[in-house]
Design a protein around this nucleic acid. Structure first.
Lengths: 196, 196
DNA sequence: CCATGATTTGAGCGATCACTCAATTGTGTG
DNA sequence: CACACAATTGAGTGATCGCTCAAATCATGG
């Protein structure tokens, strides 16, 4: 299978798994979404589980890339963290496959499946570490108070996004989600102190 | 089937569904957990879906009762809201079937199943309304500033708990969860103003 | 324009799914 | 103790699950 065709198929699988979760997505669903017959799917991706894992990695990579782009474009780490929160403001109006995080959904849905939950957990830890690193950077640059616990800030930030995105899954939440994202962004910005 | 036996079976089903979710819980699993054969299960609960819905209602009712008890025992609405947050401090060390909220798990897992997600959504709305009512009560009693938006406070409180409990699902999070619960409780308490 | 190897196809595999019902066991009553 | 009825059993239903592989199709080089 050509590489770009495979990538296209993987993207479709990602969207389907993100929307429906692992268990509720059948091979029939995948056959339809990827427009591939079972044999081709297995030739390209080995198994449903392997395909899911690859889709999950892709999801995590995309998210990390978005955050890294913000870090590169924003004037400071704290500004990037705030901008990242604001990027969820229109969550309720987007047409994404789902609103909640696919990694969080996986940890919650497949808690008793070690292969899936361990991988999702690792990717979540990476994500939290990215946030923590941004807070550390902000602290190193004197953007936030030196006595703040950056690990704690990273965890809290991470949990807030999880809560916001889970909330966004609820119907009719668009306006509330927009407000909450803005509120959270302002709280992050409020951590800024005068340069020493 | 005797009423208390049925209640016992329903409780076991609730624990199983809460831990594993709807799709990953098979009738074989239920047969083992309830120590009942398929015929008896169907005689008592009609279908897997109906059993799940009843278990979900039971879960929601228990949660609501816990919060109402706190409201009754605590000196003020705000104190109850703070105490409720602190009740999640030992989430990481408890032996509950799961740490994340069963209603949230259902909305995330069964997003494309209207029967399950609509019911879960309604129960979540009830839960949020309970929190909002407590903030309203706090405001009526002059415990918090009259200009605060209680609907917003209720939503935010609700989302924070969702985030906290989803975070608690991750392994090794016990200490972090305890700290975060305490932090959130203090933030709620910080809303208190001087009596007029 | 054919030969050859790579790719895709889709019927169908055994396993498991949610669920049923005739047969069996349990229970309350005269 | 005998009987009528209720409750429970578990083998078995058709459907669907993830998955396989011989056959058909496609792509490439001579």
């Amino acid at each position: 299978m050509k590489a770009d065709k495979r990538e296209e198929a993987l993207s479709r699988a990602q969207n389907l798994f993100w929307a429906k979760g692992y268990h509720a997505t059948s091979l029939k669903d995948l056959e339809a979404a990827l427009d591939m017959r079972p044999g081709s799917i297995y030739a390209a991706f080995d198994s449903k589980e392997a395909l899911f894992l690859e889709a999950l990695e892709r999801y995590a990579r995309e998210g990390a890339a978005r955050f890294d782009t913000l870090r590169a474009r924003q004037a400071s780490p704290l500004a990037a963290l705030a901008a990242h929160l604001r990027s969820f403001a229109d969550l309720g109006r987007r047409e994404d496959p789902a609103r909640a995080c696919m990694m969080v959904k996986t940890v919650l849905e497949a808690a008793d499946d070690p292969v899936l939950s361990d991988r999702a957990e690792t990717l979540l830890a990476d994500t939290e570490a990215r946030f923590t690193a941004a807070f550390q950077d902000a602290q190193a640059k004197g953007e936030i108070a030196p006595e703040l616990n950056t690990a704690k800030l990273g965890r809290r930030y991470f949990a807030e996004i999880g809560g916001l995105r889970a909330y966004a899954q609820r119907p009719g939440s668009a306006q509330a989600v927009a407000e909450m994202a803005e509120e959270l962004a302002r709280e992050v910005e409020a951590l800024r102190i005068e340069p020493a």
